[in-house]
Amino acid sequence: MSTLKTFLLRVAASLLFLAVPVLGVWTFVTAEANGWWFPLNVSSYGGEIDYLFDLILWMVAITFVLTEGALVWLVWRFSRPDSSRAVFSHGSHKLEMIWTAVPALLLVFIAFSQMEAWSKVKIAMPDGTRPDEPYTVEKPLAEVYASQFDWRFRYPDAEGNFEGADVVESAYDFYVPVNTKVLVRLRSRDVLHSFFIPQFRLKQDAVPGMEIPVWFKAEETGSYELICAELCGWGHYKMAGKIHVLPEDEYEAWLANARTALYSNGSED
């Protein structure tokens, strides 16, 4: 190969590998402006999850830039035509020790830094069913039933029973009070589904035969999409719901109204 061709190849290859960290970082930097980023968090624990994501993002980004940068530099520097031989080295014990120990420490740090948030979201439940943290005992607000391809939200009657004539059932729309720890029982009637509310940073599969407790505390009123996140059949993409976070009094009014509407005489239909 001619010298010019070799040179051009070196430049092209190095630029190509250089584009990986450059465009890679650029994509992440501009992601938020492009809308390719997390939707705004509105739950009490979502901030912690976002923080952990950012923490890992920073560690990952630095490693990414350093390793990809090193790769580019190595490709550029050591691909130049040279009649002499390569450095005859079989490795370095010292380097191996360093690049084993340092990542090990970082990884252990990452692992331990995740545990508290996980325990808060998934292990400790407001009703004390997983009593790792002292919570006031509360009853589930609702039972969420997933089925192909629908969400049903069942609110207990005034006595807190989920079986009985006065259970209020709502399709698609799930009304919850703001700034309240809401505990729901997640159930499925048929196949696996997953209860995913991106803005709450909450996801939990619904498994037939299991009754899984899920809790959240929404801190801002508004309507948020509920998405099924586990393949549940051909209509998976149709399985949507909406969570309406209402001020406490509006929520109470809605529930009272729904209980009354249950005994409607049909004149409004």
């Binding site: 089925s147 391809f149 629908d150 399709a171 698609y172 009637r189 209509g235």
Partner: peptide, 12 residues
């Protein structure tokens, strides 16, 4: 929708 059939709620 029609509950427990393949006809879901289309309120989305």
């Amino acid at each position: 929708g029609i509950y427990m059939t393949a006809m879901p709620s289309f309120r989305r």
